[in-house]
């Protein structure tokens, strides 16, 4: 058991992966008003694509990463077009069930193609462990922190500065009004899914580099935890997702180290329940007013 600082840094590493996934949830929720349950499984797909491109096709790391991210982005758009778009006017329960179905579909396809045995995967990140005084930080954690930082800054700039970003904000504010202003709503929604899925792919790559094993259910738990992070930060809010993700990672790593590793999941979900009861809109979320 390392020092508290070490646990904090580890938590920060896992937390920033959660934050990346949570960003996808939050953006999709902001725009499409739905929980994309299949989002967690995009991580798994990303991990498998990376595995195939690196070990089967023997591609260089950069190319493999690029292919993985593109593949997941296209997958995200496809899922939206096939499963969610026809249900845009349907009740939320129907959309939620479809999303759960999609998540199951991705998992069972992976199960059929790669079977249930976990595949060992050697990390593609080759960075030495860094020692700072008494605390050691593994190379993977360091790279994870840097990559997530870059992704978040880029995303924030994209959303606040570019035209496409403001289109996204407009659609999430009011779909009909955005359409009247000449924004292509369908394209904006597709773009959101693409960005969210690309971020999930990055998270997937970082995740397998950390845990070095791939299985079809790999995405389920981080997916749900990232969702908890998104809710914790206030769903629909981009900075909220980042804070929520990091916070959750730290809580998880601290409780794993000092309370009980078996109860970690219970604690993480307990946090979710608590947050929803005390402040249902999350830390940074806006209160929704019920209209008749």
């Amino acid at each position: 058991m390392g020092s508290v600082l070490e646990q904090l840094i580890n938590g920060l590493g896992t937390g920033s992966i959660y934050a990346l996934i949570a960003l996808g949830y939050t953006m999709v929720y902001g725009i499409a008003k739905m929980i994309n349950f299949a989002h967690g499984d995009i991580i798994m797909v990303g991990a498998y694509v990376l595995y195939v491109t690196v070990t089967q096709f023997k591609l260089p790391v950069i190319a493999a990463v690029a292919i993985t991210v593109t593949f997941c982005a296209v997958l995200g758009i496809t899922i939206e077009k096939i499963a969610y778009k026809p249900l845009r006017k349907a009740p939320s329960l129907a959309v939620l069930i479809t999303a759960i179905g999609m998540s199951f579909l991705l998992q069972s396809l992976a199960l059929l193609i790669f079977n249930a045995n976990p595949i060992a995967f050697k990390s593609i990140i080759d960075v030495q462990t860094v020692k700072l005084g008494n605390t050691t930080v593994s190379g993977v954690t360091l790279v994870t922190l840097i990559v997530t930082m870059i992704c978040m800054i880029t995303l924030s700039l994209f959303i606040s500065k570019t035209k496409a970003g403001s289109a996204m904000r407009a659609v999430s504010e009011d779909k009909a009004a955005a359409q009247l202003m000449g924004i292509n709503v369908n394209r904006t929604i597709s773009m959101t899914f693409a960005i969210g899925s690309a971020l999930a792919a990055v998270a997937g790559i970082l995740f397998v580099c950390q845990y070095q094993s791939i299985k079809p259910t790999l995405g389920a738990l981080p997916g749900i935890k990232a969702f908890v992070a998104a809710v914790l930060g206030g769903i629909g809010s981009v900075p909220g997702a980042m804070i929520g993700g990091v916070l959750l990672g730290v809580i998880e790593s601290i409780s794993k180290a000092y309370i009980s590793s078996e109860l970690t999941d219970a604690i993480v979900f307990g946090v979710l329940v608590l947050v929803l009861l005390v402040k249902p809109s999350g830390l940074l979320g806006k209160n929704r007013i019920e209209k008749v």
Binding site: L87, A90, A94, T98, G101, M102, S108
Partner: peptide, 21 residues
């Protein structure tokens, strides 16, 4: 048997699409 989960997934999605069509 391997297709069982796949079947469940397809049932969920297809029923929802069918219901709202």
């Amino acid at each position: 048997d391997d297709f069982r989960m796949l079947l469940y997934a397809v049932v969920l999605i297809a029923m929802m699409l069918f219901n709202s069509s």
